[in-house]
Amino acid sequence: MDGSGEAKAKAPQDRLAEWLAEDMAAVNALIRERMASEHAPRIPQVTAHLIEAGGKRLRPMLTLAAARMLGYQGTDHRKLAATVEFIHTATLLHDDVVDESKRRRGRPTANLLWDNKSSVLVGDYLFSRSFQLMVETGNLRVLDILANASATIAEGEVLQLTAAQDLRTDEAIYLQVIRGKTAALFSAATEVGGVIAGAPEAEVRALFDYGDALGIAFQMVDDILDYGGQDAVIGKNTGDDFRERKLTLPVIKAVAKATAEERAFWHRVIEQGDQREGDLEMAMTILSRHGAIAAAREDAIAWAGRARAALDNLPAHQLRALLSDLADFVIERVL
């Protein structure tokens, strides 16, 4: 196989990582430097467990790619990329406590290895570090975007607390939840890359639209995979969302078509939390009966299409092509 054929065989995020290798090396060095703590050694221990667990660094790469694609020649985009990764890691630490999760990225969660207090407090530390980094760029608009994203993420998580176990939750509320808890950081990551590059307003908006749609597709795919993905692929146990009584898109679609008997089942396992042997299998049977997984897949494909369409408003560039491929790759996991 020649070099070009070999490149095509690689996943888009791997090709993106190669293109941005110098920037990513600097970002990783910055992350290691800023997650250090002279007085509290547990901070780098907990942070390193998650940050160095093999995560793809997708969100910081989006920031780097957006800035480079629009001709940025400085180095502040690296601080913003590290900021985005710190915000993401902080939310993961907090999420695992809220969800009482035991696995993250195929490894035991920090709250399982240490305790909930450490996870929450180290998450708070990373949020503080992220704000220090973004302030260092001296760009007030960047600070506004990332501060708003942080608030939106928290808002989405709180909304999920009330909506996730309520059978009245519809697709509009679900979209509001995932736009908050997932897509907000994707769109902020791409948008600040354009802002720091001094891009025209139309291009900054296109980057926001791309990140928003990509993040929505990404979360929809994760929710679909929970009802049939391989543990190694999704980094958690299949059925975790069911066991945690989360009303995700496939279940919402099934509930909308439920018979009285099926609705009683969903009421028992989701709203009441009375889960018994064989209930996960029954849930998957009901999802299949109503074509809920296939319908959710079509929604994810449509959002990936929106992400690709947003890129049409940006100048031609190798990185633009890679970002388009990335939108396709996100949904390939459920095709």
Rank of each mutant, 00 (worst) to 15 (best):
M1S: 14
E6V: 15
E6S: 15
K8W: 14
A11I: 08
P12N: 02
R15T: 14
A17E: 12
A17V: 02
D23S: 12
D23I: 04
M24T: 07
A26S: 11
N28L: 05
N28A: 09
N28T: 09
A29Y: 02
A29G: 11
I31F: 11
R32L: 06
R34D: 12
M35S: 13
A36I: 03
P41V: 10
I43A: 11
I43Q: 09
V46E: 10
E52G: 10
G54Q: 13
G55S: 06
K56Q: 15
R57P: 11
L58K: 10
L62G: 06
T63P: 10
T63Q: 08
T63F: 02
A67F: 01
L70G: 07
Q73E: 15
Q73D: 15
T75E: 15
D76N: 15
H77G: 14
K79Q: 13
T83N: 14
V84N: 04
F86I: 00
I87K: 04
A90H: 07
A90W: 04
T91M: 01
T91H: 01
T91W: 00
L92Y: 03
K102A: 08
R105V: 01
G106S: 06
T109W: 07
T109S: 14
A110G: 05
L112P: 09
L113I: 05
L113P: 05
W114L: 09
D115V: 00
S119F: 04
S130P: 10
M134K: 03
G138F: 06
L143W: 04
I145M: 01
A147H: 06
A151G: 13
A154M: 00
A154W: 00
L161C: 10
A163R: 00
A164M: 09
I173K: 08
I173P: 03
G180A: 05
K181Q: 03
T182Y: 04
A183F: 00
A183D: 07
A184M: 03
A188E: 13
A189I: 06
A189P: 11
T190E: 02
G193E: 06
A199C: 10
A199D: 10
P200W: 06
E203D: 14
L207W: 07
L207R: 13
L207Y: 12
F208D: 15
D212I: 07
A213D: 10
A213F: 03
I216T: 15
I216M: 14
F218K: 07
Q219M: 05
M220Y: 07
V221I: 10
D223C: 09
L225Q: 10
G228S: 11
G229K: 03
G229E: 08
Q230C: 14
I234N: 06
I234G: 07
T238D: 13
G239I: 02
F242A: 11
R243Y: 11
V251M: 13
K253F: 05
K257I: 02
A260L: 08
E261Y: 00
R268T: 06
I270K: 01
G278S: 04
D279W: 03
T285K: 02
T285E: 13
T285Y: 00
L287T: 12
L287Q: 12
S288A: 15
S288I: 04
R289E: 15
G291C: 02
A292Q: 04
A294I: 03
A295L: 04
R297E: 13
D299P: 04
A300T: 02
I301K: 08
A304P: 11
R308P: 09
L311M: 13
D312K: 09
D312F: 03
P315R: 02
H317L: 02
H317M: 02
H317F: 01
Q318I: 00
S324F: 05
S324R: 09
D328M: 00
R333M: 05
